[in-house]
Design a protein around this nucleic acid. Structure first.
Lengths: 145, 145
DNA sequence: TAGACTAATTATAGATATTCTAAAGTAAGA
DNA sequence: TCTTACTTTAGAATATCTATAATTAGTCTA
């Protein structure tokens, strides 16, 4: 993991008057090191061994704190639970419809917001674009079946 | 509502071996006549008067049946409950972040799926694009406040 | 460093959305 | 009409997430 991102994130939180606690540090570290866009429950389970007394509510509370501080993004898809992405740069996602894996797809943001605004009378300030298909692993699995 | 869409939908279901029941007919009719992208609960409440004994489970069951038959699409957003869209033609949505209203935005589909596939190794077969902002009514409301 | 103040964590209960189960009902073909 | 398999119903079960209250733990000040 990029150590600077963690220290930068801690710094950002400090500036917003958010205390650093062991649980917070661990959740943040896990999010920043993960490329897997984990759910709250996955984070909870991953840290359970090191924090046997940690409550699920703590995970949710802190995810909200991080989100409010602009450090992470919440992603909601068809499945029940939200996923969290520590990459807040502009990027799109490709999602495997077989296993649910989410992969980043870096691409220059499309320029359609003003057209959407014109076409509907809304003011538009952001957009979300996702691609659906099959990841390499699941393609392979389907082939050998 | 377009009567032909309803009869066409019933025909499609028949071909997939799905029986027509009064509840199914009502749910389908409601979906096809609604421009509001209703939630399961909204459908349930709307039909409660005519079907006092209908169960919520029936609404969910049938939405799944229709979805599997390709007659409707399920839309999931940040808020808790799914919305259902009987318009399965290619189109995008603009969503009001203040009141939750969802408006269709007809636009020629963007052509990025092959790039997403190249960039990630996935096979890509669909995409979803949404715009977020403020609807005309909420803009007005904010102005006069 | 001691004490006080405030924020964070924990455990638990609660809210909401959706699915499951088993029994009873019903559409549609023979 | 009869039969059979699919549907509906009611209610329980499950899952995710939030709210609450009590306890714990940082951090600030003297």
């Amino acid at each position: 993991m990029d150590k600077n991102r963690l220290t930068g994130a801690i710094e950002t939180l400090k500036e917003s008057g958010v205390r650093m606690t062991p649980q917070r540090h661990a959740i943040l570290q896990y999010l920043l090191s993960s490329m897997e866009h984990p759910t709250a429950d996955e984070i909870y389970k991953a840290l359970e061994a090191n924090f046997p007394n940690m409550s699920v509510a703590t995970v949710y509370n802190n995810l909200r704190v991080f989100k409010d501080a602009g450090l992470i993004r919440e992603l909601t898809y068809g499945d029940a639970s939200s996923r969290f992405d520590a990459n807040v740069e502009d990027h799109y996602h490709v999602i495997c419809q077989t296993c649910g894996k989410i992969t980043d797809f870096d691409y220059a943001p499309i320029d359609l917001e003003h057209r959407a605004a014109e076409g509907t009378g809304y003011t538009v300030d952001s957009h979300r674009l996702e691609f659906y298909g099959t990841c390499p692993a699941c393609q392979h699995y389907k082939k050998i079946q």
